[in-house]
Design a protein around this nucleic acid. Sequence first.
DNA 1: CCGCCCAGCTTTGTCGACAATAAAGCCTAA
DNA 2: TTAGGCTTTATTGTCGACAAAGCTGGGCGG
Lengths: 222, 222
Amino acid sequence: MSIAAFAEQAVTSADKTFLQLRVDIVEGAIPPGSKLSETELSTKYQVSRAVIREAINRLESCHLVERKANVGARIVSLTPQGLIQLYQVREALEGMAARLAAKNMSDQEIADLTALLDNHFQTVKGGESYYQEAGDLDFHYRIILGSKNQHLIEVLVNGIYHLIRMYRVQFGMAGPRVTTAFDEHKHVVQAIANRDEELAEMLMRRHILYSKNNIERKLLQS
Amino acid sequence: MSIAAFAEQAVTSADKTFLQLRVDIVEGAIPPGSKLSETELSTKYQVSRAVIREAINRLESCHLVERKANVGARIVSLTPQGLIQLYQVREALEGMAARLAAKNMSDQEIADLTALLDNHFQTVKGGESYYQEAGDLDFHYRIILGSKNQHLIEVLVNGIYHLIRMYRVQFGMAGPRVTTAFDEHKHVVQAIANRDEELAEMLMRRHILYSKNNIERKLLQS
DNA sequence: CCGCCCAGCTTTGTCGACAATAAAGCCTAA
DNA sequence: TTAGGCTTTATTGTCGACAAAGCTGGGCGG
């Protein structure tokens, strides 16, 4: 359920098309760099061009597609340095999120977060590397929401994280760093529980910086 | 010219309407919290409803308006804590921008930035408080662009700064802090010139933090 | 007298057609 | 043969009309 809180419900037809398209893009069903023809999509998804246009507009505000006037929309093309830049933004924003979470999360929320981590620990100890995807996301989402900062939440949840997921799929990073990342998570939560804003931010920044370095290494060797 | 580099040129009709609407919103011609009726706007700006809808969509991605399905769009309502949250995001992002600028700006760009500051110094010394608006913006924009980080630039320039301007207009902060802010700017530039990433980030963060505190004080006493 | 429900009306969502712009291919001329 | 310009064609931008959902006001029943 934890993550399901973000299941935005689509009421209008453009909503559904937007969500569907976003999945298709992030999951790679439509490859990066490819052109999005309005007429083609309108037949494919059985909706009018106006709906497609609205969906594409929203995709653009997620930074998943780029439009040029009188030319059309293309899915963004992914580059290693683009991923690096994304992690730089993540480091700044999630660092601040951790700081604010240390200040603003309720005791109950912190308790829940701790419980979540214990739960994950059982899984990790069991040897399953299930952790990476769902668990990691859940952890980061909770802290972002815990910041109680609407702008922060918006930019990260609706903007950056879909792009991150897209990179993960395209560059095929299922990712090791499971146990070490788990320890880092634990320390961040401890700092938040201690209401140590300074430390929470620093630890979160390092956690993301390590991730970035890890990814850089993998990108270079391939 | 410096700032004119951001003069996005509108080619399509929706572009012009969007830019016009954005000005009208940011400058306060359309007050915060008010409803944006599509038909009303379409007669007012002499364009079809489709154009208005597209413009509103883009305004939404700037976080200047909020939409509800089957209900309509309203201009965001401004709250003191909303402004605080905005400054928290600014602190994180522009701090990172200063760090990256110290790494990525060319020597020429740094020289230009220094010259710009000297120029501003003459103005400040002359007693004109012209500085606040244009000069401050120019300084921050250059460092943001100097980061060479596309995501950072996007979020700040197209998203946050218009909101900041809107708050400035609505809450009527022409702003003192002229000379002290100038010194802070100077120190940031020095750190960037020395390629001291750590210090550049720290100084920029403090600069914005001071601004935030200053604003908080003013908000409370009113 | 108060509250609920229904009808009408306003506003948004969706659609198909037309206009305008840019890309592609062909034709001509150097 | 190739470069340049023109024509054709496909795609996007814009429009007005229709469909559907929400809000408002009046009437009915408790």
